[in-house]
């Protein structure tokens, strides 16, 4: 090669490069299905919404339904739990963002923004710790909200992270009340 090291690009160079590029694109196109098949499949995505009947839920109690393989808690909060949640100043929060899929992405984490207008007693939330995905225990912990036994994250009555390694408030999924006693999640 040394004799031809310095020369103007000729047709042969062009062919080498073009062939090489075609090879790279081809290899990429062939690799993609192998990666793509790893993504959630159609049957997993199909489980995208569930309807819950909450007529039996007294204040202070909660129930859990499975949505997309994850537990979603519906909690009917007592007056005291609501007051506790509303009394918290935004400055005391580790994560000041509402993380409510029904609101804009930057909505602040007020108690009202963690619930739905007119239904402030009801918390509907993906009960998955934002640390590494364990299921926190309800009605537990220093703030009477949730406590994650895995690495000790503590959430308040609005599911906001208050202490421990978790970085974010627990997520609020897309949901709406389709009647006074029925919620549609997803």
């Amino acid at each position: 090669m040394s004799a031809t090291d310095i020369h103007d690009p000729n047709r042969r160079d062009f062919l080498y490069i073009a062939t090489g590029m075609a090879g790279v694109v081809g290899a990429g196109a062939l690799a993609w299905p192998f990666i793509d098949q790893m993504q959630p499949d159609a049957s997993t995505l199909a489980l995208a919404s569930v309807e819950v009947d909450v007529s039996s839920l007294q204040p202070g109690s909660s129930l859990v339904v499975k949505w997309r393989g994850k537990p979603v808690v519906v909690r009917n909060r007592t007056d005291k739990e609501m007051k506790d949640g509303a009394a918290v100043s935004l400055n005391d929060l580790k994560d000041p963002i509402a993380r409510n899929a029904n609101l804009p992405a930057d909505a602040p984490a007020t108690d009202a923004n963690r619930t739905t207008p007119g239904k402030e007693a009801w918390m509907v939330m993906v009960q998955v710790c934002t640390h590494l995905g364990c299921i926190p225990l309800g009605q537990e912990g220093d703030f009477g909200g949730w406590f994650c036994p895995c690495h000790g994250s503590v959430y308040d009555t609005a599911g906001r992270i208050r202490k421990g390694p978790a970085p974010e408030n627990m997520a609020i999924p897309v949901f709406k009340f389709i009647s006074d006693t029925k919620i549609l999640i997803g």
Partner: peptide
């Protein structure tokens, strides 16, 4: 759950990688 959760810590692409590993949301 906890170990695949490590990947969700990666900024931007973390959740995608985690779903890729799990083949679902959990």
């Amino acid at each position: 759950t906890v170990i695949t959760g490590f990947f969700s810590a990666i900024p931007l692409v973390g959740n995608w990688i985690q779903e890729l590993l799990l083949g679902g949301f959990a």
